[in-house]
């Protein structure tokens, strides 16, 4: 008797389920909205508590003072060279050269970065690792490119035509009153078109970034495995004060 009831129940249940499932479901209406994550939404306490130690660790590392900026350092304070550009290019030369020399026996002759790669102003006052993240948020590494003298001339043409103060170091470009190349010296010596030069730059630029096409003719590219941002942080740790100036590395004769 009990078995029979069980059977009956099973049969009825299966029957009903089948009847339900056999009814076709069809999509009748779609409603689409965008919900802003606004201030008025409650903060989930579990998530907040989970994130907290991760955030505290980042803040502790990023916000400790490494150096002091004596004045605001900007990429907009000069026409042919700027304080921020000079600081950054000088840091790349100083920090990358020992590594490059150890690996290859060669010296970096000069540095070229791109103006657009400097992403923030360094304000007067304490400088921290967070400053380096603001100035250089990208994961770009230092690469050293071997260029022919001809390619260096193509690079100079690019610099003159770009009308932007792309950061340079270890090279001096002097323009005539009318804006043509007057003189060029590299690593303290007059430029020699028959010589090859080692140019430190960002790996981003070696791949055609910012239309720096002359890097396509590289004879050789050595990656230094050193993030530009880490070079900045290491330099900030090494010095007490940052006080870069606009100088005569790139100028037009009056």
């Amino acid at each position: 008797m009990i078995l029979k009831i069980k059977h009956f129940v099973a049969i009825v249940t299966i029957g009903l389920l089948t009847a339900c499932q056999s009814k076709p479901q069809s999509l009748s209406e779609i409603e689409a909205r965008q919900l802003p994550i606004s201030d008025s939404i409650t903060t989930d306490a579990t998530i907040e508590a989970f994130v907290l130690p991760y955030r505290q660790r980042i803040d502790a590392v990023l916000d400790s003072t490494l150096a002091i900026a004596a004045k605001p350092i900007s990429k907009e304070d000069g026409y042919y060279n700027t304080t921020a550009g000079n600081l950054m290019a000088d840091i790349v030369l100083e920090q990358a050269n020992p590594i490059f020399k150890k690996r290859t026996g060669e010296d970096i002759d000069f540095v070229l970065l791109n103006h657009g790669g400097i992403r923030a102003v360094i304000s007067k006052g304490p400088v921290s690792a967070r400053t380096a993240y603001e100035v250089m948020p990208f994961e770009n590494s230092i690469a050293v490119v071997e260029l022919s003298g001809q390619s260096v001339l193509a690079m100079i043409d690019y610099l003159i035509a770009s009308k932007r103060a792309h950061p340079i170091s270890g090279i001096q470009v002097v323009l005539t009153k009318s804006g043509e190349l007057h003189s060029l010296s590299i690593a303290g010596k007059a430029f020699d078109v028959n010589k090859h030069y080692w140019v430190a730059t960002s790996d981003y630029l070696t791949k055609g970034g910012d239309s720096m096409v002359f890097f396509k003719d590289a004879l050789n590219i050595t990656t230094v495995d050193y993030l530009i941002r880490n070079a900045l942080i290491d330099y900030f740790k090494k010095v007490d004060t940052l006080s870069p100036v606009i100088d005569d590395r790139f100028y037009k004769m009056e």
Partner: peptide, 17 residues
């Protein structure tokens, strides 16, 4: 940057569409 959440609701019924 997680500024918004998209929400799409799909409604089904047993009528022929």
């Amino acid at each position: 940057f997680g500024i918004n959440l998209g929400r799409i609701d799909f409604y089904f019924d047993d009528r022929k569409n």
